[in-house]
Amino acid sequence: MEQAAASQMAAKKNDKGHRRRLFYDTCGRWFFGAAACVMSIVIFAIIFLVGKQGLQTFAEVSPLEFFFSGQWDPLSGKYGALFFILGSFLSTALAILIGAPLGLMGAIFLAKVAPTWLQHVMRPAIDLYTAIPSVVYGYVGLVVLVPWLRETFGQATGFGLLAASLILAVMILPTILSISTDALQAVDPSLEEASLALGATWWQTVQHVVLPAAAPGILTAVVLAMARAIGETMAVQMLIGNTPQLAVSLFSPTATLTSNIVVEMGNTPFGSVWGNALFLMAFVLLLLSLAMILLVRRFGQRRFA
């Protein structure tokens, strides 16, 4: 009798413990789900708050003026952001033109040519490229690149579009390298073997078989590099010269959306038209980067964060 009672007690205790564990299990599931939902809440909050603050500009400034006028003179009420938008696009385009070919060649090297030991060196090296703070990039640009450009090309200052784009080109290298390398390595080896067996040289195989097969991944890499370049702030601000004018040559000082926000945000009262115009510029940047993410998803390639 006593034994049966004891075992019943034990079973009850076990049951209680089991129920407790099941309860914890449910709690865990809810916590994990909630944590995941935080991600969506955050991005919507960013779009909402930055958008709301920025769009208030249109109460005082017409969208036409903001997007299509280059006259930026907040003290006399002129808020034309065209040159900043163009500056952002130009510096990004130039950075891609310089950085993407080098990055792509590096990726082909890393994926197909480099011996294993060198791959083990290059992978962490790419991580290091990403890890170097953008102010350090900007600072090295400031003390090395700008004087060098000034001396070599006989320019007045050396600040300007080219200096910013060269540093940006270095900064987007890791993005292009890592994503293109993964894309190249993911190409089915049997495709390559078939091409080689048909008598194509290795380079012909790479050109006509491997690169086209990896094209969606490489495009993804380029678009994400563009997103990084257009959003880059510190290095660009330190090198571009910060003058709200159109860049007519590679050496003319100009400004971008990001650099202008950093330069002027400190001087503007929160909630003024000037401040709101800067928030609107940030909103434009936000929409551009979101558009790029949607573009990348169209390529249907691997995920990226």
Binding site: A36, C37, M39, S40, V42, I43, F44, A45, I46, L49, V50, Q53, L224, A227, R228, I230, G231, E232, T233, T258, I261, V262, M265, F270, L278, F279, A282, F283, L285, L286, S289, L290, M292, I293, V296, R297, R303, F304, A305
Partner: peptide
Amino acid sequence: KCIRLSVESLATVPSIVLGLFGMIL
């Protein structure tokens, strides 16, 4: 899908925009 898209978007939001968001909020 929405959560995944959010994570990817959040990763590409320029840091200055995050900074301005932090400034507002």
